Simulated assay, not measured.
Amino acid sequence: MAVKLPLADELAAIFARASELLLTDETVSRALELITAAAEAAVPGAAGAGVTLIDADGRKHTASASNTLVEVADARQYDLGQGPCLLAWASGEPVLVTDVRNDHRWPAWASAATELGLRSSVSAPLLTGDSALGAVKLYARDENSFSPATVRLLELFAAQATIFLINAQARESARMISEDLRDALAHREIIAVAKGILMARHGLDEDTAMQDLLMESRRAKRSLRDISVELVSSTQLPR
């Protein structure tokens, strides 16, 4: 099936609209929903689009899906541990499936996709440096729905989705630091004592002692006050 891809100015308009989210408090979920909807709309014949995220421990989840069919098709890949989306993530390369019935790379998933009425797919990894955060994918009910040109287009959407993820992670880190600092101001007396303990115990300067408290707070996912109270309570003060 021939696929008419959007013109350059249409793609520019999509990405310009998407990029506005980087300047707002929109969540990463909302950003990925926009990318998913735009990717599906950009390719006639697509039965659905989605974004899979995979963490450092290999845990997989569909962060955005245009419909239930995408969620189910993704879940089959996760359950079976095989499929085009997972290969795109693992290899860092786009994966094109022209007809699942004639593709022998993942027999179990090909059978599951056929049962769902899917015939073709294309997946592009979310690349950051030498690693991948997951993949963007399109599914179709007809064979030969996607071409190498579709692959290149989906790589553009994957690049945009990666930008959202990186910026969202940076915003989240900044938000956590801001919350820690607000907590510090609200409970500065107990925190000052905890900081003094670290300075005396490890020969640290004031700034380094504060950084150690902040890092422990984020690592343990507990408030700075609670970390300080615990440290003070566990320290035998001289009589």
Rank of each mutant, 00 (worst) to 15 (best):
L5H: 11
L5K: 06
P6V: 02
L7F: 10
L7Y: 11
A8N: 12
A13M: 07
A13K: 09
A13T: 06
A18Q: 15
L21G: 11
L22M: 12
L22N: 11
T24F: 08
T24K: 13
E26L: 13
A31L: 08
L32A: 14
E33H: 13
L34V: 14
I35L: 13
A38C: 10
G48W: 01
G50M: 06
A56W: 11
D57P: 04
R59F: 05
R59N: 10
H61R: 02
T62R: 02
V70M: 14
E71N: 11
V72Q: 08
A73E: 00
D79A: 13
L80R: 01
G81I: 00
Q82G: 04
G83T: 00
L86R: 00
W89G: 00
S91G: 04
S91I: 00
P94L: 04
L96T: 07
L96Y: 08
T98E: 14
R105C: 08
W106G: 03
A108D: 14
W109M: 04
E115H: 03
R119W: 01
R119I: 01
S121H: 06
V122Q: 01
L126R: 03
K137E: 09
K137S: 11
R141M: 03
D142Y: 13
D142C: 11
D142A: 12
P148K: 09
L153V: 11
L154F: 06
L156D: 09
F157K: 07
A158C: 14
A161W: 01
L165H: 06
N167I: 03
L181T: 04
A184D: 15
E189N: 11
V193R: 15
A194I: 03
K195E: 02
G196P: 05
L204H: 05
L204P: 14
M210L: 15
Q211K: 12
L214F: 10
L214G: 02
S217L: 02
R222N: 10
R225L: 04
D226H: 08
S233Q: 14
S233G: 12
P238Y: 07
P238K: 12
R239F: 09
